[in-house]
């Protein structure tokens, strides 16, 4: 697993280098932007998420185009290892981005008059959960497409997107009692609000979906195409 993760993360260094350079530029801009004082944390979190997901998506796409799953499946490693390596890849990218964030803050601090507020650990956990969730959804979609290849099975792929949609939006509909559809269900609203506000809520969802994505990967019927 570690050898695969090392290969995947060390692959295409030039592109990753350019990406991290771009990240550093973005963070420096945010740190120097005095006017963004009040929105600095949300802006930083948004940037981390956008940058990480775009890098992860580009990496996944690259792996799919080059059919590297096929290469990995032929190696004497378990499918679980391959699946977990795929799951850990976004974490690796995220860690690098966090590292850049802190390094850029260290570099900037001596040159500015105000003190920088960094995202808290709780923010970071929430963000990690979100990245894991989005990555798991991408991997699940790909694997379900490979598993349900027959025409009559396309329904399952549609069902998957329907569930993703529900999972993403239903909590907000319930909390806000969208068009009065859900009535005044106080316990449900309280529970969902707490979960979404809790830093570990997204982390739990992200880890759960990632585990599901590893299981689905290990159960695929074909690894010929990615």
């Amino acid at each position: 697993m570690w050898r695969l993760l090392k290969a995947e993360s060390g692959y295409d260094r030039l592109r990753m280098g350019t990406f991290f350079f771009f990240c550093a530029a973005v963070f420096l801009t945010i740190w120097f932007g005095v006017r963004w004082e009040r929105n600095r944390i949300p802006l930083t979190l948004l940037m981390i998420m956008t940058l990480t997901l775009s890098a992860v998506y580009a990496g996944e796409k690259n792996r799919i185009i080059q059919k590297r799953d096929r290469l990995h499946v032929l190696l004497p490693v378990t499918l679980w290892s391959i699946g977990i390596a795929h799951m850990l890849y976004p974490i690796f990218v995220l860690l690098c981005v966090y590292l850049l964030l802190f390094l850029s803050a260290l570099v900037v601090q001596p040159f500015i008059s105000y003190s920088l507020t960094m995202p808290s650990l709780l923010h970071i956990l929430t963000l990690t959960g979100l990245v894991l969730t989005v990555n798991a959804v991408i991997l699940l979609y790909r694997d379900l497409r490979m598993t349900f290849t027959k025409k009559h099975q396309r329904f399952f792929v549609f069902l998957f997107w329907f569930l993703v949609y529900l999972g993403a939006l239903l909590p907000f509909y319930v909390i806000t009692n969208f068009f009065g559809l859900f009535g005044e269900s106080k316990p449900a609203q309280t529970f969902l609000t707490r979960m979404l506000e809790s830093p570990t809520g997204f982390l739990v969802i992200g880890i759960f979906l990632s585990v599901v994505s590893v299981i689905v990967f290990a159960k695929r019927k074909s690894y010929v195409d990615s």
Binding site: R70, V73, L74, R220, K221, S222, Y223, V224
Partner: peptide, 9 residues
């Protein structure tokens, strides 16, 4: 052959 090497289940 792909069934044997595990590329197909």
């Amino acid at each position: 052959i792909q069934c044997l090497v595990g590329l197909l289940r």
